[in-house]
Amino acid sequence: MKLLLPVDGSEFSLEAVRFAIRLVADGLRADVVLANVQEPANLYELIVAHNPEVIEQVSADAGMHALRSAQALLEAAGIAYESEVAQGDPAHTIVDIVERFGCQMVIMGARGQSGLRRALMGSVSNEVLHACPVPVLIAQPQSPPEVEPQE
């Protein structure tokens, strides 16, 4: 089975990676694709950067940075993986990655770093759940992440 693990660097997405690792440890034979989707540059970023190549490089670097923790978890578990950093609307791009890599399941976190987007348009996981042609498993955290008290 080929699993897609979309990660954004958040603890919620890493919990999905940990869940996939537990499945493999319990005997699931799986190939893993790690993916990070960077949203396109906004108008301000385009104006300030002056050079589209700079924006592309910053986006690619941010995507690779977001994958590092998930890669470390998989490497520590001895699980081979492929990586993909893409750019576009997160939900639609995740569905595209599923189709391009021939994934048979998506395992993703319930919440990520895109709080404003979630508030305005609904969560990425919800969009993927409804648009994806393969099963989507939404991994809930084992225990709630610690939140610092606000003053």
Rank of each mutant, 00 (worst) to 15 (best):
A131L: 15
P141V: 07
P133D: 03
L4E: 04
E56Y: 08
G112I: 10
S143C: 01
H50L: 13
C103I: 11
G63V: 12
E148C: 00
A86G: 08
H92N: 14
R22E: 15
M1I: 11
R68F: 10
V7G: 06
V136C: 03
P145W: 03
V7L: 09
S83L: 03
G78V: 12
E75S: 14
P141Y: 01
Y44E: 14
A62I: 03
G9L: 04
V48W: 06
E82L: 04
G109Y: 11
G9A: 09
Q150P: 00
L73A: 14
R117V: 08
P90I: 00
V54N: 03
V24I: 14
S123Q: 05
S13E: 05
P145D: 02
R111P: 00
P149G: 02
P40G: 09
V24W: 00
V17H: 05
A119W: 15
D8C: 08
Q150E: 13
G115Q: 12
G27R: 04
L23H: 01
D31R: 13
M108F: 03
G115T: 12
V24D: 00
L129C: 06
I21K: 07
V124P: 12
R118L: 00
R22G: 09
S13C: 10
R68G: 08
G63C: 11
V98W: 01
V128K: 07
L67T: 13
E84G: 00
N36L: 04
D26I: 00
I94M: 09
V48N: 06
V17W: 06
P144R: 11
A131F: 01
R111L: 10
G9C: 07
R100W: 09
G9I: 07
G88S: 11
N51F: 08
M1A: 13
R29M: 04
V147T: 08
V147S: 09
F12H: 13
E15D: 10
A30K: 10
C132Y: 07
P141Q: 02
G63Q: 11
A25N: 14
V32G: 04
G63S: 11
D8N: 08
A76S: 03
D26M: 07
Q38K: 08
E84K: 11
A16C: 03
E82A: 07
V136K: 05
N126D: 15
Q113H: 15
L3H: 04
V136F: 06
L34R: 01
P40L: 12
E11Q: 14
K2P: 02
H65P: 00
A49L: 03
P6G: 09
A76H: 04
P6E: 06
D89L: 13
I94H: 08
G122F: 12
H130G: 02
V54Y: 07
G109N: 09
Q113V: 08
P90R: 02
S114M: 09
S83P: 01
V85I: 13
